[in-house]
């Protein structure tokens, strides 16, 4: 059996997806990227192979993507995360859509045409506010486990408003709120609100909006909040954190 692998080495997490010739996902893995991107790529590929129950030689082609795409020495091609996210989303939504991806340090808005062709894209400016790194920093400063944030925001009785553009100043603002006794659940919901606002101001979010990336994977409330803001339902594909890796695997098949 000839399978195809997509490896997405993001700034925060490394993802691997293996698909079979019929485009079925047969193996996947997600790990922290760490500092050794080449080792992270090896590890997620081997874990995905183990899940698929296939040997390395059965992988016909590999496409790498993400911040560390050039560190994946065994990849046949490197493609940008813009293209791979577009391809991955088009797999589930073969129609014109606007992709909103919130990653570890990059946010992207990608406009896709009827055949999945890219009509244009925007990335966040040289600033990580509103990205996964922003949420991680705030969780760290408040000593909160990342996996609890969604649940906390869901329970919130209200939400705070965060005024600053800057992650560091936002942290200062938030710590001030915590000192004043503002419930932490409301702070976390306010943090998510600020993430949603930042992506909504990046570009026009026209037509059907599909959210991807690790932030929405771990915090589904973010998609709901964006739906509220836009006044229409925001779609989330299966395994939204691995959409880039899926797109890379699909591109590997099409090479």
């Amino acid at each position: 059996m000839s399978c195809f692998a997509g490896i997405d080495i993001g700034s925060t997490t490394a993802k691997a997806i293996i698909i079979d010739p019929e485009q079925r996902i047969v193996g996947h893995s997600i790990r922290r990227s760490g500092y050794d991107f080449a080792a992270a790529a090896e590890r997620v590929l081997n874990e995905a192979l183990a899940e698929a129950g296939i040997a390395r030689r059965e992988v016909a082609r590999v496409v790498s993507t993400g911040y560390g795409r050039r560190n994946v020495e065994f990849a046949d091609k490197q493609r940008t995360e813009i293209l791979c996210h577009a391809r991955g989303v088009n797999f589930y939504y073969p129609e014109p859509v606007t992709v909103v991806d919130i990653g570890g340090q990059d946010n992207k808005v990608i406009h896709l045409g009827p055949s999945g062709e890219r009509l244009g894209f925007t990335m966040n400016r040289k600033c990580a506010a509103g990205t996964g790194a922003f949420i991680e920093e705030i969780a760290y400063r408040l000593e909160l486990p990342l996996e609890k944030l969604n649940e906390m925001a869901e329970k919130a009785s209200g939400e705070v408003k965060i005024g600053s553009f800057c992650t560091v100043f936002s942290c200062t603002e938030i710590l001030g709120m915590a000192r004043r006794g503002v419930p932490v659940d409301n702070i976390i919901k306010g943090v998510f609100r600020s993430v949603v606002k930042r992506v909504a101001e990046m570009d026009a979010l026209d037509g059907k909006v599909v959210m991807t990336g690790g932030v929405v994977d771990h915090n589904p409330i973010v998609a709901r909040m964006l739906s509220e803001q836009l006044g229409r339902k925001v779609e989330v594909p299966p395994a939204p954190q691995s959409i880039g890796a899926l797109g890379a695997a699909l591109l590997a098949r099409e090479l």
Binding site: Y67, T80, E81, I82, R118, F121, M123, K126
Partner: peptide, 26 residues
Amino acid sequence: IDGDLNDLRCYSEEQAITKIEAFIEQ
């Protein structure tokens, strides 16, 4: 692309490369 004429502190090279490569892919 976000950058500057002289102050490279204002330029994120990796981000710029990704944008340019993605533009050419487009």
